[in-house]
Nucleic acid binder design. Structure first.
Lengths: 211, 211
DNA sequence: GCACTTATCTAAACGGTGTCAACATGATCT
DNA sequence: AGATCATGTTGACACCGTTTAGATAAGTGC
């Protein structure tokens, strides 16, 4: 009954709350920050009682994980897109890094939430393990940029290093201490590119030195 | 009055609570984790009422910052020591990185707390800005390892990159996804060394390729 | 149509939290 | 001595995550 309007199933009397809750959470995260993201606030924002979410998520944690999930999907899409639009393999690598960083700078609270939930489980988000996911695109981009595809160990090390480096940069890139350097380089993006270039794993291995 | 026993000033009737609170917090952090670190729990552990801490710290945040502070001091000392015990400039660089990583692995909850509080202020901990602090030792170690001391910009970029990379690795190094690689390399330390070697900024610039 | 089951939501409560105002205590100073 | 001020306690407040019990509405079988 009712128009099935929004594409996905809307099962019972309220409309599908779980989606509404996740969206409410994202809204709060953007407008008021992580400190204001209480279960009760999310329920309030969605117009239901504080206990309602417990019929859709066993925990506050589980709700946050759902929010993080959509975040990982979004950043994954941004990465595939960034890679596709690159001219050279070397550019693809730095584009991936830049896409990751742009996402984290545009959604800082969401990115922190994403990372906190994955860190609590001490394991990569599920997407990262699927070939088509956009997160482990780094590995194949490394190969295209000149890494030896037969040296699996070396490849994994380079991938892990890339991941760590770009995550660290994502968390620190807005530190005030870097402002002077940023200005000297002419803005945020040149700064990020410069730092990426210092990470061994984001540089072009095929020797013609991009850009 | 009373024996001045523990070296430092113990001003009023209880003994100096602020130090006791910080130590209580560290104890809780180690034994029960960050989730259990409430102001009330800290007060309980220190044997005072829940409101007592407010005469020494204006906030829970301010108490946590004090805890983080002693953490930064400790990691700084570990870094100077690690650098001192290095034979070559290249070894000094990787030793610094490794000391940082060892500290974060031995005190995971404390390290996370340290980083969370500095991140909330979006600026490096104060120690990092002092020449003798052990944190900006990276810069001078880079010079000794072959970086051009006159190119201030390049030097700062390399330092920032090192910092970001090692922080990212510190946060991710216990991910289960890396266990296979670790085993293949024969343990945690070889793994960490290998990743460090992939960070452009931690490699020896003086061309003789350490180890 | 009906009863019955099941999913969903509400109301009310519990223990825990950060914080504050009011008050008590004891050290220090003149 | 008394006054002052730093330090402590008590008790309250609003908010939090979570659970229990009960209301309501949708789907299912007759």
């Amino acid at each position: 009954m009712r128009e099935t309007g929004n594409a996905q199933a809307r099962p019972y009397h309220h409309g599908d709350l779980s989606r509404a809750l996740v969206e409410a959470a994202r809204r709060i995260l953007e407008s008021e920050g992580a400190a204001a993201l209480s279960l009760r606030a999310v329920a309030r924002e969605a117009g239901v009682s504080p206990a309602a979410p417990y019929h859709h998520f066993k925990d506050k944690t589980e709700l946050l994980e759902a929010v993080a999930h959509v975040g990982w999907e979004a950043i994954g899409e941004a990465i595939v897109e960034a890679r596709r639009s690159a001219a050279t393999p070397g550019e693809a690598l730095s584009n991936i890094g830049l896409a990751y960083l742009n996402f984290s700078r545009e959604n800082p609270a969401l990115y922190r939430l994403m990372y906190d939930t994955t860190r609590d489980r001490t394991s990569m988000p599920e997407h990262a393990k699927q070939e088509d996911s956009g997160l482990y695109q780094v590995k194949s981009a490394l190969v295209q940029a000149g890494a030896d595809p037969d040296d699996e160990l070396e490849l994994q090390l380079a991938t892990i290093a890339s991941w760590c480096a770009v995550h660290g940069l994502a968390e620190m890139c807005d530190f005030k201490d870097f402002q002077a350097v940023k200005q000297r380089l002419g803005g945020d993006e040149p700064f990020l590119r410069a730092i990426l270039r210092h990470f061994g794993t984001f540089t072009d291995r095929s020797a013609q030195g991009e850009r």
